[in-house]
Amino acid sequence: MAILQGDWIDPERSKILVGQYVKRWIDQRPGLRPKTLELYRWLLRAHVESTALGGTELGRLTTPMVRQWRSERLDAGVSEITTAKAYRLVRAALNTAVDEDKIIPRNPFRVKGADKETSAERPVLSVGQVFALSKAVPDRYRVLVLMTAFLSLRWGEAAALTRSDITEGAKNVRIGKSLLEIVGKGLVVAAPKSRAGVRTLTVPEAIRADILSHLELYVDNRPDAYVFTGVKGNPLRRTNFTKIVKWRMLTASVGVPGIHFHDLRHAGNLWASKSGMSTKDLMARMGHDDMRAALIYQRATDSAERRIADDLSRMATEYREGRSSA
């Protein structure tokens, strides 16, 4: 028998290649959403099977080899975010190799900090900027911008909305599905990102009339008619929308260059956090079953509160010291 890092292993079982094992692990994962499955398979093809890591036997893999693989990915120009995603994918698969399949005694994916991805902080749109964007897009997409921001919708959730999802008077919107664009399959209707994604949202009264007007102008009377469609009436694809509205030029024209469509949801989440909602209520609004995302927005609000308190303290100090007459 062979020895790996001081533990006995089955030399035959551990000869399976990393790429082969991860592929099998992905194929056997139950309940993966189509978009997640697509991402995992792409990460496997682009960043595991195409590298020396993918052709390495599990029993011969070491942490220094993992560290080298990660370094080579970054040196090749792969972003830190993508590299971290690939790292976490293989680590998760190899955790199964250790804990369930007993192929290897210890997971060599133990590179400190390799699983972390640091995304640049996204800008926060103001209410005025969102309305400016809604006026700048073609009229049939004006309400798409407003609903995405004021209801904190994901793109797929907004694209999947049908007339029956909007209650009488546009008082509420029911979110129960998502429209995903999958390579090789086209548009696919799937369940929301998590169980918490199934939710009913109260529409701010200020935009209800806009929604009702949109339904009258652009949506068939059939209950299953999509609320947002392309100019030919087909379900709305994200790539087509970006081209139709000339998103990059449009955002620059209203003074918010570089804004992503997802930043509309980001803005809505932050607005909601400033309304004094509890963490649980904010999670429900956002459609998250993990409180970490909600806490991020609440911490951002806390930071704003501290800045306000600091400013008020400065004003009080200046008054007490006779440096202000206010």
Rank of each mutant, 00 (worst) to 15 (best):
G186T: 07
F241M: 03
L250K: 00
Q129L: 00
L94G: 12
A206S: 13
R292G: 12
A52T: 11
A97F: 07
L89A: 02
G77K: 09
L32M: 11
I166P: 03
E181R: 13
T317E: 12
D210K: 04
Y226M: 13
T229A: 05
H266R: 13
A190G: 07
M65F: 03
D10G: 10
M291S: 14
H214G: 02
E121W: 06
G268Q: 07
K23M: 09
A309W: 04
R110S: 13
R285K: 13
I104R: 03
M286C: 10
F228P: 07
N221V: 05
A209I: 08
K274C: 05
S152K: 01
V137P: 01
R29W: 04
P223V: 05
R29C: 02
S50A: 15
N240T: 14
I182A: 06
E100L: 14
Q68W: 09
G55N: 14
G197L: 10
D281P: 03
A252Q: 04
S119M: 11
E80F: 06
G55Y: 11
E205I: 09
A158Y: 01
K112V: 14
D311Y: 08
E12W: 06
Y87S: 11
A76M: 09
L215R: 06
R110I: 01
R174L: 09
S324M: 12
G276Y: 10
A326P: 00
G169A: 04
S213N: 10
G6W: 01
R29L: 12
S119Q: 13
R320L: 15
I211L: 15
D10S: 11
K232V: 02
L312F: 15
K171P: 01
R307F: 01
Y21Q: 09
V198D: 12
T36S: 15
N172M: 07
I103W: 01
V78H: 07
P138T: 06
I26Y: 09
H47A: 07
Y319R: 15
A267V: 05
S273F: 08
R320D: 10
W69P: 06
K171V: 10
V127E: 14
R307Y: 03
N107C: 08
L264C: 05
S253F: 00
R265F: 01
G230W: 03
R292Q: 12
R140T: 05
A267K: 05
R174T: 14
D224R: 06
A209F: 05
S50E: 13
S313L: 10
A294C: 11
W155F: 11
R199W: 03
R307G: 02
I26N: 10
S14D: 00
T63F: 02
A86P: 02
G6R: 12
D165F: 03
I103Y: 08
